[in-house]
């Protein structure tokens, strides 16, 4: 599937910010089932962008500004990717960290007793790790209700699980915590999701990847209860939602009001660009 993405983030600073620094993780890597046709990150202030990679190998675009106060800043990421079906199996990524590091405890995907018990019960003694993870995904999808406008704002997997409802990021954090409890290395993915038909739900999304012996990394989306299909555009990975965010930013003492406009559409019927 050919997918066109436009992700525009507008920051309004009050009082106007004299210092700004951001690490943007808005650029995907290509791999076997995701090919980058083009990608560009731009700012509407005069500041150079430096590119590096973080611990997980994500592309990080860094910029900073000091001096004249800035009231408004827009960050734009635009690009197009071509994806293909791989039954959710992620191949051809450059891995910086040893796989087993994704077994470690992380703040938002910390396993408590309730999550551990749920994980073991969901897996139902399945011997095959892939089978166990599928059962976990199905059971998680069954007991949790999806609430994209979650106002209680649970932060961690344990908190969201106690409420039995959450946003996509909560589903992903819970899945990761449980997968690790079952002995499978697991990580958080932030990206976009597109649909064959024009649909209001397309946009930013969060899901998980778990490592399965012999297969490698497999993308599970517990919110929808499927393994990633060609509608998924994978951008950032991390131990949990905390380090797999699109951006981390500092802006001195100013308040930051953020407005995001994300367009994700199939590029099949494009006229001209």
């Amino acid at each position: 599937m050919r997918i066109r993405i436009s992700h525009e983030t507008t920051h309004r600073y009050a009082p106007p910010a004299r210092m700004l620094i951001q690490n943007l993780r808005l650029t995907p890597h290509g791999f076997d089932s995701q090919y980058l046709l083009f990608w560009r990150v731009a700012l509407d202030i005069d500041s150079a962008i430096k590119t590096s990679e973080d611990a997980h190998g994500n592309v990080v675009s860094t910029f900073s500004h000091h001096g004249a106060p800035i009231e408004r800043l827009t960050v734009t990421a635009r690009g197009e990717v071509e994806t293909s079906d791989s039954a959710g199996v992620i191949r051809g990524t450059a891995e910086r960290l040893p796989t087993d590091m994704y077994l470690r405890d992380s703040p938002l995907a910390h396993v408590n007793g309730a999550l551990r018990a749920f994980a073991i019960e969901s897996a139902g003694g399945a011997q095959d790790p892939l089978d166990a993870l599928h059962r976990l995904m199905a059971e998680l999808h069954r007991v949790m209700s999806f609430d994209p406008y979650q106002t209680d704002d649970p932060d961690s997997a344990a908190e969201a699980f106690a409420l039995r409802r959450g946003r996509a990021r909560d589903f992903a954090n819970i899945f990761i915590a449980c997968a690790r409890a079952l002995g499978a290395p697991a990580r958080f993915v932030t990206g976009y999701r597109a649909f064959e038909e024009p649909d209001g739900e397309a946009g930013a999304h969060a899901w998980a990847e778990a490592h399965v012996p012999r297969l490698g990394w497999v993308a599970f989306d517990p919110t929808v209860c499927i393994c990633a299909d060609p509608g998924y555009v994978r951008v950032v990975v991390g131990f949990d939602a905390r380090d797999a965010s699109f951006a981390s930013a500092a802006h001195g003492m100013s308040d930051d009001t953020i407005e995001s406009v994300i367009r994700v559409e199939q590029a099949r019927f494009q006229t001209q660009s």
Partner: peptide
């Protein structure tokens, strides 16, 4: 044993490599 390092919270992924 690898897990003593890889799962150690003080082993900082940012410094790997």
């Amino acid at each position: 044993p690898p897990e003593l390092i890889l799962r150690n919270p003080f082993y900082r992924p940012e410094m790997i490599g």
